[in-house]
Amino acid sequence: MSRRLPAIAPVAPLGAAVLWGGMYVVSRWGFEAIPPVTLAFLRVLLGGVVLLLVVRLREPTRSFSRAEWSRFALLGVWVAVTLATQFLGTALTTASQGSLLTVLTPVFTLALGVALLDESLSRAKVVGTGLALAGTLVVVAATTDLGTLDGGAGGGSLGGTVGGLGVLALLLASLGWALYTVQGAPLVRRYGALTTATYSTLFAVPLLAVGAGVEVVTTGADLGAISWTPALLAAVGYLGVASTALAWYLWYKGLEYVDSGTVAVFFFAQPVVGTVLGVLLLDEQAGPAFLLGGAVMAVGIYVVSSARGE
């Protein structure tokens, strides 16, 4: 039966994609100065603290059973897996290989939603997702060097091995976020987006702390040598507050109203937003192919988000 969705249903996940697209510009302002897993830890720690403060103000006395805590903890595992493999994969691959995260996450989410939650696979969802995927591929091709798929490490055997590990990490990151989305949906509809985003984020903090410690020991990174410039502090602040606390809440907020496959299609907007911000703030160029791909992607998102009874 058809039903009218509230305006927040498409606006929330689109807002999350916009905030994630902003990470592209932020990265150019210097947050690569911190080792990848350590950066992921700082991001989630800051985001978790912000979310917890808000939850405690809104729900100061709420408690959960052991079974409920275990479900939040599982989501925390997927958060940790996603961020660790995403940051490592990005560090080991080229920009074009990194686009795997954007392209495959919605595809994995759609498939897992059907398999694990028995979500419907309507014609509108298939067609819209296909259009969004095609448009995103055009955008990626128009804004990255697709001739550097050897791993970005010089083209030798080591480069190919490192690049292959990077691609594998990005595939795991895509799958991890898809599982975070799909397995979080029932909790979101029971406890709300804010509560679910908060406690799943907090459970990821100790896991990423261990990963950061292993990273420092194995790489010999000198954290004391990090130069905490205003740009770096702003970058970490954006990652923690905007692209974690706010964006993850908005992502889950969409799940309060529509299924995971519908929310996932908004993920395709991330590279388009990143490119637009690059043009506006970094004097980068975007040609007709980018505009065409962005338009096709927007049509695909509209088809999925406007479908009735999803």
Rank of each mutant, 00 (worst) to 15 (best):
W20E: 11
P35E: 15
R56F: 12
V296T: 05
L277Q: 09
G293I: 08
V236H: 00
V162T: 11
S200Q: 05
A235L: 09
L207W: 10
Q183R: 02
R71F: 04
A242K: 05
L14S: 12
L52Y: 13
A132H: 11
L171C: 07
D259V: 07
S2Q: 15
G47L: 06
A231F: 04
V55A: 07
A231K: 02
Y191S: 00
L46N: 06
V216Q: 06
T105A: 12
V44D: 01
Q86H: 14
L104E: 09
G176W: 08
V205N: 04
L146A: 13
L92D: 02
L51N: 04
T94H: 00
L46I: 15
L179C: 13
A124N: 10
V103M: 04
E284A: 13
E310A: 08
A221H: 03
V50S: 01
L171S: 12
A178E: 00
M23E: 05
L74M: 14
V273E: 00
E215M: 09
G147V: 03
L19T: 07
A209S: 09
S120Y: 07
L281M: 13
T196Q: 00
A33S: 12
R308Q: 15
D222N: 15
A235N: 11
V217I: 12
L246C: 01
V214K: 00
Q183A: 02
A234F: 10
G21S: 10
F203S: 03
A17K: 01
V272L: 15
L42H: 08
W78R: 02
L207Q: 09
L42S: 10
G300L: 01
L208E: 11
L112G: 10
G287Y: 09
F268Y: 14
S243F: 05
L207N: 08
S2P: 15
L291A: 15
Y199F: 15
Y24P: 04
R190Q: 09
S200R: 00
A286K: 11
Q183S: 06
G30D: 12
L57Y: 14
A178F: 00
R62P: 02
V18M: 03
L158G: 10
S120D: 13
A84D: 06
G184I: 01
P10M: 14
L131N: 00
A204E: 08
R62I: 09
A142L: 10
A245E: 01
F266G: 06
T144G: 11
A286Q: 13
G164M: 08
A67G: 14
V214S: 01
V263A: 00
G159R: 07
A16D: 01
V81Q: 05
G152Q: 07
A95Y: 11
T136E: 07
V303M: 02
L175Q: 07
L233S: 10
T218Q: 06
A132T: 12
A298N: 12
G237F: 08
G164E: 05
L246N: 05
G151V: 08
F267E: 08
L92G: 05
T198I: 03
P36W: 09
T219G: 09
